[in-house]
Structure formats: C-alpha cells, structure tokens
Amino acid sequence: MLDGAEGIRRVGVVGSGMMGSGIAEVCARAGYKVSVYDLTPESAEAGLERIQRSLLRAERAGKVTTEARMSALGRINVHTDLWRLEGSDLVIEAATENEQLKLEIFRKLDEVVTSTDAILASNTSSIPIMNIAMATSRPEHVIGVHFFNPATILDLVEIVPSLLTAPKVIDRASIFVTAALSKTVIRAPDRAGFIVNFLIVPYLLAAIRMYESGFAAAEDVDRGMVLGCGHPMGPLRLADLIGLDTVSAIAHAMYLEHKEPLYSSPPLLQRMVSAGLVGRKVGRGFYAYPEP
C-alpha cells in the first residue's frame, strides 16, 4: 500500500458478487483495509466465502503465501449496514448493472460517506457516469473505475470521468489503480459501453445472432474465433463468463444512447436472461458448467 500517496487508506465496496468480491480482494492484497457491504446476510456471507476460495486458489497456484492470504483476509470485513462504509476514503460500487439501483446507492452513499475528500466510484460497465454523479450533491467527486472480470487476474481498469469530475479526483483514482493496485489504466469517454465494451459487445451480439439463426453451432462459432483469429476465448464462452444478464444490460444501455440496431439484444439473449440462464456464475448459459 502507498502510505497516503493518493490519500486513500480505507476502501469501501458496495456489492459482494463476482465483481465486488474480486475488487475487495485486489484491494486487500494491496494492503488496504476493505469494508464490503451487501444487502442480506446470505449474500454477504456468500461474498466472503467467494473471497476465501479465490485466495486459497491463489495460494495453491503460488501467487500468494499462506501469510499473505491470511493477512489479506484479515483486512476484509463484510457488513449488511451501509453506514459501516462511513469512514472510507474511496467507495467502489459494484452492484447489479441496473441504473435505478445504482442511482439509489449513490444517493445513500452521499449521506453515509462523510469525508469531503472521499471518492465515490462506480464499476458500471455501461451506465453514464454523469447520470450516477447527479444522484449526489458532489458530482465532482464521482468517477467510473471499471474493473474487468475476473478483477483478480485481468490487468486493465477503465477510468471514466464525467463532465463534472474534478481533475484531482481523476489523478487520485488513476494513481490508486496504477501505483497501489499495480493495474493498467486507460482513460475512457463517458459514453455507454466506454471503450472495451463499446467494441466487444456488438461482436458478442453478432455471435449470439449467428447461433440463434442456426447458421453455426456454438462450439464452431467459438472454435472459429479461437483457432482462426487467435482469440483466447470464443464469443459465446466469453458472454457466459461476463454473464448474459450483464451483456444484455450493456447492450440495452448502448442501444438507448445510440439507437443503432447492432446494439439491440437478440431475442434468444433476452429469453435466456428471463430464464435465469445467465452463464458460468449459475452453471448454465450457452454451455453447461458443473461448478458455477
């Protein structure tokens, strides 16, 4: 941990799902005290167990020592009381990709996080940061800090300032991500989808349409892109990894903003989300996964 170099000593995380637990683990491994909030005791406990399993896998892979694993766990506290985030210098929201939910979270964080220098960040992958910032009384302190799944492995973070984000906040968030978390930052525009998802989501939707139409089998679509284009993972497996609900939410946000047909969700994607078949995290999407 950089001792106060970016003015951040305590980190809060809202949400303990796949992204929230990953972000919390990354921050704890970097030496920060992390308070994680989730809505129910069951989801909070599941989030803590997810972090414990992830750290154990990292130890078995030789990426952390036993001492480092236990030390990181000791820096993480999971709560169902949002007010436990009150003393945070940085809060990263990692809730479900639902705009109304995120706006409500930021309204509450505006009351809870009392430090006038605190940064309120969203891990949203598609929702305009300007919309989120205006739910607070301090839009200049709100910024997008978009990690990629799995946050413990992927190096990239998109820093997304709104029109009102203060330059100092941009600098502090960037220093925190690069110097403290040892990740790579790219500056993304406050536009639905930002940089990476703006490019990747139309590709995923095209693959889903190809499969939906019967043009090609799922395995052939994926094998073609892996062996023919050198991609590490095919588009349908990647969609399963991201979560089909997240892919659909990003596509919806991009379509609302740009009104381009290529951003609209294919009917099959909508039906799979409605059925709860949202990919690897639940054990079934375009493929079956024995261990969700």
Rank of each mutant, 00 (worst) to 15 (best):
A28R: 02
L269R: 03
P235F: 02
E219R: 15
L56K: 11
R187A: 11
L85M: 12
V221A: 06
L204Y: 02
A28Y: 00
R69S: 01
E59M: 11
L39P: 02
K183S: 10
E260R: 10
G15Y: 05
V112R: 09
R191E: 09
A206E: 13
I195K: 01
P128V: 05
V14Y: 03
S21L: 12
L73G: 07
R60K: 14
Y287I: 04
G31H: 00
R209V: 12
S248F: 06
E97D: 08
Q270H: 07
M18G: 04
L48M: 05
F147I: 12
V185E: 07
P267L: 13
G224P: 03
G7F: 09
V282Q: 02
L244M: 05
A253L: 09
A58S: 14
A218H: 05
V91L: 09
A68F: 02
L164C: 10
T96H: 13
M254W: 09
G47Q: 01
G214P: 09
R284A: 15
G214I: 15
L238R: 03
A180P: 05
A217S: 15
E93C: 13
M70G: 14
L82M: 15
P290R: 14
R209A: 15
R280N: 04
R107K: 12
G276D: 06
S248H: 05
R271A: 13
V113I: 11
V247Y: 07
Y203C: 10
M254L: 01
D117W: 13
E45Q: 11
T65Y: 10
I23F: 10
L2C: 10
L2G: 11
D190C: 09
A166F: 14
I242M: 06
G243W: 12
A28G: 01
D3N: 10
I23E: 04
A179C: 08
V247W: 06
A95R: 01
A68W: 01
T66D: 10
L269G: 06
F194S: 01
R280V: 14
Y32F: 15
